[in-house]
Structures are given as C-alpha cells and as structure tokens.
C-alpha cells in the first residue's frame, strides 16, 4: 500500500496542474465567449454560440479523443498530451462557464443600468464597476460546481497519456493487481482534492459577499 503512494502523489500534482490550467483556459474562453454573445454584431455572436453549443452538445471524452487522435492528422504538428488535455478540458469548461456568466449578467435588473447611465458612467465603467461586481454572488456557487466538474473531468486526461492520478492508477493496477486498493486510493485523493477546491471557493464566496435586499 505504502509503496504506491509516491506514484499516486506524483499523479496528484499532474492532476492539479491539468485542472488549474484548464480552469485558466476556461475563464478566458468563457469571458471572450460572453463578450461576443452580448455584442450586437451577429458576426461576433454566432461564432460564440457555435463554440458553446459544440462543446456543450458533445462529450468531453469525445472532444479529448478527437483532439488527440483526429486533430493531429489535420494539424501540421502534434501538441503534447498535457497541452491538448488542458486546451480541450478548458474549452469544454469555458462553454459551460459562458452560460453561467451570461445568465448572471442578464439577471442584473434594468434599474441598475438606468442608474449607471443617469450617473453618466461610461459603458466600460458600467460593466466593470456596476454590472460585473453584482454578478459575483450569483456566479460563485455554480462556478464552484463547474470547477469540481473540471477536476473530475481531468481524470479523462489519463486516457490520453497524461501521467495524472488516473494514468498512474492504471499502471499500478496492472502491475500489482490490487484493484480495490489502487482505485480506492485514487477515489479518496480525488475526493480530498474536491473538498479543498470547494473549501477555497466557499472562502472566495464569503469574501465577495455583500448583503442584497429585495429592492435597493
């Protein structure tokens, strides 16, 4: 049991890297997609819609296999498994994140926009000082769920040669045949990682919190 720990811990670090990288990619992708979706130009709106539907409408594993097996046949180069996994899992999460963010932005009441206009705030100030800060309490809980989903989805990277927990667990399972132990330990490690991530998101939530009444 003990001799498998170093390998599992090395896998844990890689899982953390893949998840963190994917979250960064997802945040950028979601922000861009929402900015495009909120634009009045159809030329910006439509590509964002297609991106969101494409990634939400198919499964992460298919996207990953497609990027790993099919895409290199079309591309002039082969991205490393790590890069491919981070990009695909990030774009996948970004499509879900975009819907969360867009819903929150659209839910800010019209009175808030009116007040910002009446105070002569520029449209940038309106967005970044009035609308977006109000969306934090709305997007943090679903975002916490999304990040945990992304942590769990990172296990798929192990199927395309990324040496994460899943990958190392498979190797250990094949070499030791201690099935219950290997996968039991893997489950527990993922569970602890999810708890840490959830705890961090709850801290962030408390930090971003402001009291909100029915009408302010």
């Amino acid at each position: 049991m003990l001799h498998m720990l170093p390998m599992m811990l090395r896998g844990t670090v890689v899982t953390g890297e893949v998840t963190a990288g994917a979250i960064v990619v997802a945040s950028v992708a979601a922000s861009c997609a929402v900015a495009m979706r909120l634009s009045t130009l159809a030329a910006l709106d439509w590509p964002a819609r297609v991106y969101i539907e494409l990634f939400r409408g198919t499964s992460a594993l298919i996207q990953l296999f497609w990027a790993f097996y099919a895409l290199p046949l079309v591309l002039p180069f082969r991205p490393s498994p790590m890069i491919a996994a981070i990009a695909v899992l990030g774009l996948n999460g970004g499509a879900y994140g975009a819907e969360i963010l867009r819903g929150a932005i659209l839910s800010v009441p019209r009175g808030q926009h009116d007040a910002a206009t009446a105070l002569n705030l520029s449209s940038a100030a309106k967005m970044f000082r009035v609308v977006l800060p109000q969306t934090w309490p709305l997007i943090l809980p679903p975002m916490a769920n999304l990040f945990i989903d992304m942590l769990k989805n990172s296990a798929l990277a192990g199927l395309v040669q990324v040496t994460d927990i899943t990958f190392n667990a498979q190797i250990l399972q094949e070499s030791t045949l201690r099935n219950a132990q290997v996968y039991g330990v893997a489950l527990v490690i993922y569970f602890i990682m999810a708890l840490v991530l959830a705890g961090f998101m709850r801290l962030l939530e408390r930090w971003m919190k402001f009291p909100i009444g029915a009408r302010v």
């Binding site: 009175g111 007040a115 009446a118 105070l119 934090w136 009444g213 302010v216």
Partner: peptide
C-alpha cells in the same frame, strides 16, 4: 452630465457601501 435623476425603486448599487454609491460617479465621471 447636466441632468440627474432619482428613481422610483432607488436603484442603489447593492455591491457598494452608501459612501461609495455616492463617490463612484464623481471619481469616475
């Protein structure tokens, strides 16, 4: 900038404290 308005439903910014609600526009605008 010549016009100011007070609304039926107040429309204060819920994420800013009272003082910031008032200082936001003078500073930014």
């Amino acid at each position: 900038s010549k016009v100011g308005m007070v609304f039926q439903h107040f429309n204060l910014f819920p994420h800013l404290r009272v003082l910031q609600n008032i200082t936001e526009a003078p500073v930014r605008v």
